Amino acid sequence: MPKQILKFIDAQYDLYIGYDEIVFFKPKKIAELQVGYSYDHAGKSFADETKGSWNNSWIVIAKDQSGDSIFVDSGSSRFTVYAAAHGEGAWEPYVISDSLFEFNEVIELLPKMSFGRSNPVGIEEN
């Protein structure tokens, strides 16, 4: 795994952003937490070349409150960050950040932006 990704996740903490949360995986557990994403409990890979399957270069680094995955494409030069619903039968990822560096900038702003917006009344007022 690229050192940049390990360094990034090692510096993260779980984010509670009012109406949702992002739970980051820790470097020591990153390999075992790929089970269910890139391979099964027996170590069989889910990655193949078919549409909707997992990609070998994707590394799950976090999940949100609903269990949807946030992952990095370790094969891209800028480490593009994606999200996708987990348990839908096929992976349909969408880009949430063009790079891991830009994603870091966004997650540093999220707690400030979500302050006072933890419920419908707070959202309406802020």
Rank of each mutant, 00 (worst) to 15 (best):
S77R: 13
F24E: 00
D40K: 08
K44W: 10
G36D: 11
M113N: 10
L33W: 14
Q65F: 11
D10P: 09
I9Q: 00
N55I: 13
E108C: 10
W91L: 11
V106S: 11
G89E: 10
I96D: 09
F24K: 00
V35D: 04
I9R: 01
A62D: 05
E49Q: 05
V35F: 02
F103T: 10
W54S: 06
N104M: 03
S118P: 06
E32L: 02
I30F: 02
S99W: 15
G116W: 02
Y82A: 01
S114I: 01
F8S: 03
S74N: 11
R117T: 14
F103G: 10
G89Y: 07
Q34A: 07
I96E: 06
V95Y: 12
K3N: 10
E49I: 05
N119P: 10
L33D: 13
L33H: 13
I59G: 01
S69D: 06
S38W: 03
E108R: 12
Y19E: 07
G43D: 06
N104L: 03
E49L: 03
W54H: 06
T80G: 13
V60F: 05
I17Y: 07
N119M: 06
K7Q: 14
V35G: 01
L33A: 08
N119F: 13
K51V: 03
K3W: 03
G43M: 01
D73F: 10
F46I: 02
G116V: 05
I9A: 01
S76E: 07
G36V: 09
D14H: 07
L6P: 14
W58T: 02
Y13N: 14
F24N: 00
V60P: 04
Y19S: 09
K29H: 11
Y39K: 08
S114K: 01
A31C: 08
Y16C: 00
S45D: 04
Y19R: 09
V23T: 05
S114V: 00
F25H: 05
E102S: 14
G116H: 07
Q34L: 04
A11Y: 09
I59A: 15
A84Q: 15
Y94D: 07
Q12I: 03
W91D: 15
L15N: 00
D98V: 06
D64K: 01
V106H: 12
K26W: 05
N126I: 12
E32I: 02
I123Q: 05
I5N: 07
A83K: 12
A85K: 15
P111R: 09
W58I: 06
D64S: 00
V81W: 02
Q65I: 09
V60K: 02
K51L: 01
T80R: 14
V23P: 00
I17S: 12
E105F: 09
V23F: 01
I70A: 01
S45F: 02
Y94F: 13
K28W: 04
L15Y: 02
V72C: 10
G89D: 12
L110D: 02
A85P: 15
K44M: 11
K63C: 00
Y39E: 09
G75P: 09
R117F: 07
L6M: 14
F103C: 04
L110A: 01
I59F: 10
A83Q: 09
K29P: 08
G87M: 06
V72F: 07
H41Q: 15
E102I: 11
D73P: 13
E88R: 07
H41C: 14
Q34F: 04
G116T: 07
I22G: 00
M113V: 11
V35Y: 06
K7A: 14
K26S: 07
G36I: 07
V60E: 06
E125V: 11
Y37N: 06
